[in-house]
Design a protein around this nucleic acid. Structure first.
Lengths: 270, 270
DNA sequence: TGCAACTCCGTACGGCGTACGTAGATTGGG
DNA sequence: CCCAATCTACGTACGCCGTACGGAGTTGCA
């Protein structure tokens, strides 16, 4: 249950699953299937939304669908592949509003916010990797859409890819931090305040301000400002601002007369 | 096995474990323990280094230590707490070379590199959260040390904390991406090249360059430049540069005459 | 000396993903 | 039209996991 994501066994099988709608139906000899892969995935997403990814066990999912646990394996090769498809399905469903943005900065900000919203809607996403998602139709469409935000702004192709991955990685990272905090709070059954109250005796004894002067000062200030040891919203806002500033340095660098940045055309991968 | 990290049950118990060395020994009535918590944790770290975090099962760890599985529970309340202590132990052991850095930029770069090195030495770290680590002595010392890199550079206390978390989050995020790629490669038993070759027929049929012009161009260029769909080292180098640029915008902003940034002094947390 | 407190650990429970084999439904080919 | 091939559905079982529980042995203090 610890490592999600697939690419196990026959890797082509996962791809066929992801692209199932664009693939020619293969001749079926036996009885028709009672459900569809899409229905199974939808149920899995609903279950994960409601109770978290750990609740998506093959047995529980089968129960929700009214079939026997092992019947799931006629739709999906295993749990890891199921999660792959869940992820790509979510990507495929993301709203792609016209990149209305005036400047690249607000366009990229919108991309970040959209991704953040996805994590907010489906908190279990923080538990899967997403950085190197399976090459499904959803992921591909998302990649194309999001690259538009950076198109024609003086970055070469490699930089465009790197910049997008950079932003997406940040959003994932902050979403994960937020999810961690939420989980810790739920698990420990107590508010940040209660936790602090319970552990203050021990901690104040250990936390020697003379030995840790900066940590003491900065930690106190941050705690006071956020009302907690960590504030995901503030961290996101702060980080995104820094990231956009950092990218703007790259954008506004003196540029060569600039023949289109197209580089070699070898197919991706290798 | 999916959610690591603790704070379950009695939260004070975890703290007592973390600070065990600074705490007064409590009178022991029964027989002496054959091992120490520190030895157990060291064995667990060694096992995780060698075979990954999933290999650190209570049974396997007990086997390595020559004790019965259930005997572990006399040292540690459970697996989650064990992982907490493993993490803090690693933090405590990080080399803290004098912040020799001339300017804040190279100091912060060194902090990032040190953290990256830790992820490199202990790849299983990518599987635990680390963003909100337990408040142990290692974490505290690390926090103090790393804050030094940002001290006296015109950031107020809240910004100092946010900036550090921002950098550390990035390092974790890129380490995780690298680990994901490594895991995928191991699992699928094939190189990136072999994977591509096996799946090219299906993918080239799906990947319509007219429908996805930017993805096609940028993806190809990135793949060609990196020799793979993703290059963790390049992503790290690119991201860190952007981050430092972004922070420099913050540092070099016009500053108020600047009374020391010390804010309210309420204890952290709340 | 007695007993409370502690360590160690054997057994067992309830969970998980899924390998394997079978029974029954469906359908294309002769 | 029939039947062999092929597919779905699924019951059972295996080998993992973390850990609750209670008993047996050991120690230090009253």
């Amino acid at each position: 249950m610890a490592s999600h994501r697939s690419s196990m066994g026959d890797p082509t099988r996962t791809l066929e699953l992801l692209w199932r709608d664009s693939l020619p139906v293969k001749a079926q000899r036996g009885p028709k299937q009672a459900l569809t892969v899409t229905a199974v995935v939808a149920a899995a997403v609903a279950l994960a939304d409601a109770e978290g990814l750990d609740a998506v066990t093959m047995r529980a999912l089968a129960g929700k669908l009214g079939i026997a646990p092992m019947a799931l394996y006629t739709y999906v090769p295993g749990r890891a592949e199921l999660i792959d498809v869940m992820l790509d399905t979510l990507y495929a469903g993301m709203a792609r509003r016209k990149p209305k943005g005036r400047d690249w900065r607000s366009r990229l900000e919108a991309v970040a916010h959209d991704n953040r919203a996805l994590f907010h809607e489906h908190p279990w996403l923080a538990e899967v990797s997403t950085t190197r998602p399976p090459l499904g139709p959803g992921q591909l469409a998302k990649y194309e859409y999001e690259l538009q935000a950076l198109e024609g702004e003086g970055l070469d192709d490699v930089e465009q890819d790197a910049a997008l991955m950079f932003v997406l990685g940040f959003v994932e990272s902050s979403a994960r931090a937020a999810a961690d905090q939420r989980a810790a709070r739920l698990e420990s059954q107590m508010s940040d305040g209660a936790w602090w109250e319970a552990n203050a005796p021990l901690l104040t004894r250990m936390f020697d301000p003379e030995r840790y002067p900066i940590a003491s000062r900065v930690g106190s200030a941050a705690g006071a400002a956020h009302g907690a040891a960590y504030n995901p919203d503030h961290a996101y806002a702060f980080g995104l601002e820094r990231i956009l500033d950092g990218l703007s340095v790259l954008m506004e660098r003196p540029r060569t007369p600039r023949a289109p940045a197209r580089k070699t055309a070898r197919k991706r991968g290798g």
